[in-house]
Design a protein around this nucleic acid. Structure first.
Length: 363
DNA sequence: GACACGTGGTG
DNA sequence: TCACCAAGTGT
């Protein structure tokens, strides 16, 4: 399942050897105290070690135990957190400290499943605490681990999607050392943090460079895959429905834009929802034909949602006077042609175009 | 499942 | 300058 090229035992041996030789000494690695491990994990969420370490030291000094933290005022906790960002981490941590004292006699639950029920502890943090403090055999998969796994095993699943996460988790469960899960997890994280770094990793000194998929295929930069959260963009389109005795002018979309290969109407795009008469008349098909026909604004605006675009669309119906066709289409545009209703029905069109024609009782 | 949540570092 | 990111979680 991991691919025939990589043996689990061998992988673990190499990883552990690398870790014992290369890992950094970090204060929260010197303890098995679940409270301190928890503190460090919360602080390090989406936060660099260099930035979080001073906060960890201050918190341990100010609140050495979960009881001490539970006894603090929230505003003092937030004050100590000041500058770290993501302040809900501090509020949740304080809330959870009180819960642990009140409900669990100040003792941390010892399994990832139980830990994950606590506020501020998700899958990663729960697994990390269970593993580091209680030696539970459960993979702690953070951003570093996703990167390491994606590259070594050539996994292209989106690490931000639930399906992708499950895939990584399934593989990690096969991979984790059952004899020393804590070191395995620390090693995977540390390996990602200082060897298998996001940008320009030094693969020449990597112990896995004989088996690493990303190295062998030179796709380190492409892994892991994180689906881009492309902002939905607003676009404002104005379509002109040119009608010549029942026939409509349509053209095939050929560009790199949306709806390639489908047929729609001529039109313009504007920067905002507002369109001035100048916009409509200036350098476009409507300007050329308007004097030859009757313009009817279709007041109802259409909203059409694409994956990364929100189209705000207005239609303008232009009834051309008889006798213009043929000839008009050639004058207006190369690929613009007039089609009878039966033909319009047959042409492939965006559903938006189909909708407006049915709304207008044309189809 | 998308989005908000913070700050400082990096190319 | 600025997008992108760094040991994620809650809604």
């Amino acid at each position: 399942m991991l691919g025939d090229s990589i043996d689990v035992l061998e992988f673990n041996k190499k990883l552990k050897t690398w870790y014992l030789r290369n890992h950094r000494k970090l204060p929260w690695r010197e303890t098995n105290d679940p409270y301190k491990i928890w503190l460090s994990e919360i602080i390090l969420q989406q936060t660099r070690v260099a930035q979080g370490t001073p906060y960890y030291e201050r918190f341990v000094t100010a609140y050495p135990t979960v009881e001490a933290l539970a006894g603090a005022d929230e505003k003092d906790v937030l004050r100590l957190w000041q500058g770290l960002g993501y302040y809900s981490r501090a509020r949740n941590m304080h809330f959870t400290a009180r819960q642990i004292v009140a409900e669990f006699d100040a003792r941390f639950p010892a399994t990832a499943v139980k830990l994950e029920k606590l506020k501020g502890l998700g899958a990663y943090t729960a697994a990390a605490i269970a593993s580091f403090a209680f030696n539970e055999v459960v993979p702690a998969i953070d951003g570093n681990v996703y990167r390491v796994m994606a590259r070594i095993f050539g996994i292209y699943s989106d690490i931000l999607s639930p399906a992708g996460k499950k895939e990584f988790l399934d593989i990690a469960r096969q991979l984790i050392s059952t004899s020393d899960p804590a070191t395995y997890n620390q090693a995977m994280i540390e390996f990602g943090a200082i060897q298998c770094v996001p940008v320009s990793p030094d693969c020449e000194v990597c112990p896995f460079n004989t088996v690493c998929y990303a190295y062998l295929h030179k796709v380190q930069a492409a892994l892991p895959v994180k689906a881009k959260k492309v902002a939905v963009k607003n676009r404002y389109l104005h379509y002109f429905i040119l009608e010549d005795q029942g026939r409509l002018a349509l053209k095939e979309r050929t560009g790199k834009d949306i709806w390639k290969g489908l047929y729609d109407f001529p039109g313009i795009e504007t920067a905002s929802a507002d369109v001035s008469p100048e916009d409509l008349m200036q350098d476009n098909i409507l300007g050329k034909v308007l004097e030859k026909g009757v313009l009817k604004e279709i007041v109802k605006p259409y909203i059409h949602i694409l994956t990364h675009q929100r189209l705000n669309v207005k239609f303008w119906w232009v009834s051309l006077r008889p006798g213009l066709h043929p000839g008009v289409s050639e004058e207006l545009s190369d690929n613009l042609s007039f089609y009878a209703p039966e033909e319009v029905e047959t042409l492939p069109k965006p559903i938006l175009i189909d909708n407006v024609l049915r709304d207008e009782r044309y189809l």
